[in-house]
Amino acid sequence: MTTENNGDQDNMETTTTPSSLSSVASSSKRKVINTKAMGTGLEARGVHAWFGNHHALADVSLDFAAGTVTALIGPSGCGKSTFIRTLNRMHEFIPTAAMAGQVILDGKDIYDPSIDVTKIRLQIGMVFQKPNPFPSMTIGENVLSGLKLAQLKTENKDDLLEECLVKAGLWNEVKDRLNAHGGSLSGGQQQRLCIARSLAVRPQVLLMDEPCSALDPGSTLRIEETIEELSSSMTIVIVTHNMQQAARVSDYTAFFLSDGGPGQMIEMAPTNEIFARPRDKRTENYVTGRFG
């Protein structure tokens, strides 16, 4: 494993300048952790990513503890999305992609050749930037599509359907039209439908790649409430460009940055610390809005 860029972080001076955003983040996170079926979190060890010869991401090591929400922030092109896509092996769908490092789930590397990759994606779900309900399916079929795709059996489909839609905060809006097409919903509802769809296969980890970037503030709020609720039963990693959102929903925040070279993880800390007392000057510049 290459570690040529490791030195950077250590050289940086530590700063303690309070951030203007600290008040937003100060409502410290607290929750009763329900350890049932939550697993043991997810750990990235020295993850690198390439697109062809372009080294997009260098040496990211992050530990996502079970039942926490971690926000990945940073300017565009710093490798956040690339990183989150290495966490459930979506990175490999880009034809020229390559990676190095390990991603550990339940003590096993998900890139181990003996692992069944479809099982991994069942345990690590993903919500995408653009709402993408399946156009040929109804709302109800969309929610249960994961079961059909992965050929899983469930005792009571109706209960599962309701449970997932309730968790995603969509039940009241769609309970009378479960047979309507997914495309008939508004953008925000579609995104919550996609969240409900990810929940139906009961993942331990949910990855969200800028889930609110295409949505209005009202829908964004609903999804943040959903994240809050879900975090008691699963591990969530969310990429966001909205720092207020990171401050509102996350327990931990990791700051990514690319200084012309491959993107790197600059620092990770509890969210209120990142916004109030970032250790790295670059993090402080970013979270206070001085660049990016």
Binding site: M90, T118, R121, N132, F134, S145, G146, A150, R197, S198
Partner: peptide
Amino acid sequence: IPNDLREAGVALGGTQWRTVAMIVVPAAK
């Protein structure tokens, strides 16, 4: 057919064959 749909199908734990048969082909019917 948008690539999003293929990725969404695979991210839900479907194999490529299941994703194509259940999502891509019906969408392109």
